[in-house]
Design a binder for these strands. Structure first.
Lengths: 110, 110
DNA sequence: TACACCTATTCGCATCTCCGAATATGCGTA
DNA sequence: TACGCATATTCGGAGATGCGAATAGGTGTA
């Protein structure tokens, strides 16, 4: 593959990943995986200020991770793609294994 | 689940994702998925300065994404967990679909 | 020990991201 | 139009991150 094109793809890929690189956005994605909600509902569920949510939702929207649908004055947000949750779950597994290895090491040293 | 604990898990999860949020680190992970390599080999393959690689490799190591094994003066790096590539591939699919949707929209507007 | 090679770390700087607070925009109803 | 509610955006500052350049540390060999 063309080297320059590959770099651009990796650049886009990194931007997608940085879309996930925030604890609040992860919480938002898992909350929306459970069921679609409006901004206000999310604000109540996740105990975040509404502007904070709108800002994070815009980032997620720009990456196609959530879908927004207006219904009157409300906007319902939903998970844009279930594969995102699958990817997050995979990373969670890796994380858990890594933590187990670390704590096993700490135990062995004690 | 305890609300505070959930926040801490999401915090860790976000750190794992931010480990992926760099085009060079993505290139490193895919390169190592093909076959284990030393730092110098990676520097040649990916055309990066050696200190840059060492810095990124440390970040990946700290998250358990790559494994390092010393052999004499060389250090061989390998992908720490295949699930990372699976997660990255999933995100790449989502990214590709999102781009297709966007370009279809642009076409429709033209 | 001295030297060469491989790998890791530090430093200074530019850039980015997040947040709270305030403000702006959009929508429905009277 | 005026008002209230839902959502989105902007602004300034604090903290994090990436880079190049220089340097330090680790390992094998003579």
């Amino acid at each position: 593959m063309d080297k320059q094109l590959l770099k651009e793809i990796n650049q886009m890929h990194a931007q997608v990943c940085s879309g996930l690189a925030d604890p609040k956005r992860i919480a938002i994605l898992y909350a929306l995986a459970d069921n679609p909600q409006t901004v206000t509902q999310l604000a109540a569920t996740l105990e975040m200020p509404q502007p904070t949510l709108s800002r994070h939702l815009k980032i997620l929207r720009d990456h196609g991770m959530v879908a927004a649908e207006r219904d009157g004055a409300n906007v319902y947000y939903a998970l844009g793609d279930k594969r995102i949750i699958r990817a997050l779950d995979l990373l969670r597994e890796v994380m858990a294994d890594h933590l187990n290895k670390r704590s096993a090491l700490v135990d062995a040293m004690a």
